[in-house]
Amino acid sequence: MSKGGFDVRRQTGFTTVAVFCFVVLYLPIILLVLYSFNAGESIAIWEGFSWRWYVSAWENERVQAATVRSVVVALSASLIATSSAVLAALATTRTRPWRGQTLAFALINQPLMVPEIVTAVALLIFFALVKVWTGYTGLAYLIIAHSAFCLPFAYMPIRARLQGMDLSLEQAGADLYGTPFKVFRRITLPQLWPGILAGAMLAFVISLDDVVITEFVKSAGQDTLPTYMLGQLRRVITPEINAISSALLAISVMLVIGFFFLSRTPK
């Protein structure tokens, strides 16, 4: 940039604002992680280092059950969302432009636009009807709901990857006697994997993290980890919550780092 040009870093107060934002964003998280190692019962008074709350959370049967449920829901939902997202991404990038394509795009991304609470209430009412009809009260409701709102998160990286791929590779596949299905399996899919994995990871994290829709849709005794934690907040808060949060944070960060490495285009 030229010397006289606009440089945001030279504006008065830029550093102050930046530092303030980072402090507000990260200090609470750092404190949360710090107090998960507190030896005492308080989440505010430091009484020395200890792993006791991690041990306590690990041994808590309700935490165990909620964790297993969270993982089952997140795995199923990310699997369903990612498979649908692959099909949706193929249909929106590898076909001639079709009537209603923009509408389809909007529909796929609907969960990003409709307020979550609205979706939650709608699902609550809808599933209540279905429950009366079928009598089924299992985990499927949660899995379906999670699959739906995870779809756009899985769709985005897959679509981006497909758009970035050289179309002439698929043409070369077809030219060399590959039927459309074989070309997809041998040419498109192997190159799409990083996008698919990235989409699946993103969907997994989003599902693992969800409170609002889960809280509305779950049947009795179907707490996931986040809704369990929400429930605990109404009682006495111990650093056990900090420990669970820190563990969740660690998992999410690892997945995001994985996402970052996978979505980089290989050179």
Binding site: A174, D175, Y177
Partner: peptide, 28 residues
């Protein structure tokens, strides 16, 4: 295209990046 006994050498070559030289040649 896949039924035509016609093959193309593309301007960009369009070699399959996830395959070796031999695998590329074997594809057809």
């Amino acid at each position: 295209p896949y039924a035509r006994p016609v093959n193309t050498v593309f301007q960009s070559y369009a070699l399959f990046p996830h395959m070796t030289v031999a695998q590329n040649i074997a594809f057809g």
